[in-house]
């Protein structure tokens, strides 16, 4: 039996050395952020379940807090080790261990076959540009005293080349690339909602104002409100519960959930999360302090945490 244990933190955070890039300043790993209706982690969980993984467990910190803010990233590994020990006793004989970060389209059967053939009980997935934080390990390979992370990280492993699409999601540029690849069907990440015409997806509850234009490829998420005379185009995605006010143009940009974007703006090559804006062309991160321009929309009931979609349906365990 195979169990998957997914830790929703970057390895850099787990090792205590956050990236100092533009992306490093972003409080939540990109893989936990909703993209075309569902986060990359939630999609990975779905994919593992569909491929017959017997148990999928997700372990992570409180959303909205950076790893350093929580101060105890090692706890995730302690929880993972406890879980692994329990599952070993329950009869699971192999484990897929993933540190969330990359979006990987993994063929689980293929990796398992490779693992059985090549490995010495430990296999690491390799993407086109290097190793991924994704391991398959036999229960017999892990003694009860082993710490999982050093054991999988430093152990001699077979290298399994992932044949599917891989996006490392280490930077905002990677995130935008994933959006565009999803909208242009360059990967298996399918947008939620209905494709109202080729390349334009609109989810349930979305309202599009009169005179607004959606030019493909474009995505409008659940309960989004687009006011009159707006333009959404060039691979832009407006995620759930956002509001785009009168006359604003959104071009080659991502608006993350629960964001308000003000009247008559021209948003290009950017990612917006509430009052935070990353402009990819100028490589600059800004906090817009003027709520008339941009702000976070207050949660109107329901769970809007980045991984709420995992928790609602599938999550087996969560570290507090």
């Amino acid at each position: 039996m195979l169990s998957a244990i997914i830790i929703t933190e970057r390895v850099e955070a787990v090792e205590g050395k956050e990236a100092r890039s533009c992306a490093g300043a972003w409080p939540v790993p990109w893989a936990r952020i909703e993209v075309l209706g569902k986060s990359a982690v939630a999609r990975f969980v779905d994919s593992l379940r569909e491929q017959g993984c017997d148990a999928v467990s997700v372990i992570g910190s409180n959303p909205g807090l950076g790893a350093s803010a929580n101060g105890s990233t090692a706890d995730y590994w302690v929880n993972a080790e406890l879980l692994l020990a329990n599952q070993k006793q329950e009869g699971f004989d192999s484990f897929l261990i993933a540190c969330c970060g990359a979006y990987v389209e993994l063929d689980l059967t293929d990796m398992r076959a490779f693992h059985d053939e090549h490995g010495d009980g430990l296999t690491r997935a390799i993407g086109p540009d290097g190793p991924l934080d994704l391991w398959m390990v036999d229960a017999s390979r892990m003694s009860d005293r082993d710490r999982i992370f050093p054991a999988v990280r430093n152990g001699n492993s077979a290298q399994y080349p992932v044949r599917g699409y891989v996006n490392r999601l280490v930077s905002p540029t990677d995130f935008r690339r994933l959006v565009v690849d999803g909208l242009s069907a360059r990967c298996r990440l399918r947008p939620h909602g209905v494709e109202t015409r080729p390349g334009v997806w609109i989810c349930e509850g979305a309202q599009i104002g009169r005179g607004s234009r959606m030019v493909a490829p474009a995505y409008v998420g659940r309960n989004v409100q687009i006011m009159e005379d707006c333009l959404i185009t060039r691979g832009s995605n407006v995620e759930s519960n956002c509001q785009i006010d009168f006359g604003t143009a959104v071009e080659d940009s991502s608006i993350l959930s629960d964001s308000y974007v003000g009247i008559g703006l021209d948003l290009c090559h950017s990612i917006v999360d509430g009052s935070n804006l990353i402009n990819l062309r100028h490589n600059v991160t800004l906090e817009i302090t003027d709520p008339v321009v941009m702000r976070k929309i207050a949660v109107r009931g329901g769970d809007r945490r980045p991984w709420a979609d995992i928790e609602r349906g599938q999550m087996a365990l969560s570290a507090e």
Partner: peptide, 12 residues
């Protein structure tokens, strides 16, 4: 500054 440039572009 890049920040000023982004804001002026944003506000058209």
């Amino acid at each position: 500054s890049p920040e000023a440039e982004v804001i002026l572009e944003l506000m058209r």
